[in-house]
Design a binder for these strands. Sequence first.
DNA 1: CATTCGTGGCT
DNA 2: TAGCCAAGAAT
Length: 327
Amino acid sequence: MLQQTQVTTVEPYFARFMERFPTVTELASSSLDEVLQLWSGLGYYARARNIHRSAQFIVKQHQGELPSDYDNLLTLPGIGKSTAGAILSLSGIEPKPILDGNVKRVLSRFFGVKGWSGKSKVSKELWDLSAKSLPADHFQIYTQGIMDLGAMVCLPKNPNCRICPIVSRCYAYQNDLVGEIPKKKLRKKKRTESKCLLMLVFDGRSSGKDLFLEKRVGQELWGGLWSLPEVELSEDPRAWCERHFTNKVLSIDPWEPIKQPLSNYILYIHPIKIRMDGRFDYRSTNYRPRAVPEPTMNTGCFTLSKNLDSSFGFPVPVNRLINQLTQ
DNA sequence: CATTCGTGGCT
DNA sequence: TAGCCAAGAAT
């Protein structure tokens, strides 16, 4: 959970996750849907898919016990060098170097590493420095210490060098290069994409309205989460509806576009609310709607209610749209 | 080696 | 407001 995510953001997710999945066995025997639901909002959903796979692997191959050696940890999906090192060092099992964002910054400044850590040569240099700096004893305290130093003192902007315990030996400070090290990645302007998300509301039940949902597949954006049908801007929404449903289209209501910055590009979501007449009637031959989604199910119509997200994991912008629909 | 993958906090 | 960055890993 903590990979590329700040501690304060993780805390409430971690609490809920541990309450629902107190053991590896519990996690392994749960559905990916349920794992993703508790992950919804945290982002980087491959982490959720990976931890679920890892749990199942641990139960099958390691008798439900997390491996306590480096090589076996590295075989688990989602656990790379830094996480494996953190597990072993922070638990006091074995000294292994780590290299997260905080440690990169501390080491870069302290030793005067001037390149950008995204380059493999620089990365290797930092890994070597991390390993070389790791003491054989007190490695547990040291590892937590260097992370905390980066998180609380050696900040990206306006580092608090006045209270830094190692400032006297810090290359960047002594050479007045704290602002230049570490070198920031020169970022290209993020590309933009625009998509329509269709909010198909079926109006034909006395018990309430239904919303059409689909489950995203694979490892692409929001893979495994439930979402709204996505179509190109060039698509005619009415024609799309008539192609997929026998229902009559009652109204088409485009909402204001939403700007959703993603890790690698900016997504402009054009929500379109479409009211449809009668009960949901898919043109596909083998579709059977159910009240509860089967694991294999990837589309369906579900009662539109305020707590829909207690049954499904949604991407944040989709969750916002659904909340607006129910208000 | 470069891309891809999310979202929120902070400035 | 817009950009930077976060307990990185997989492809």
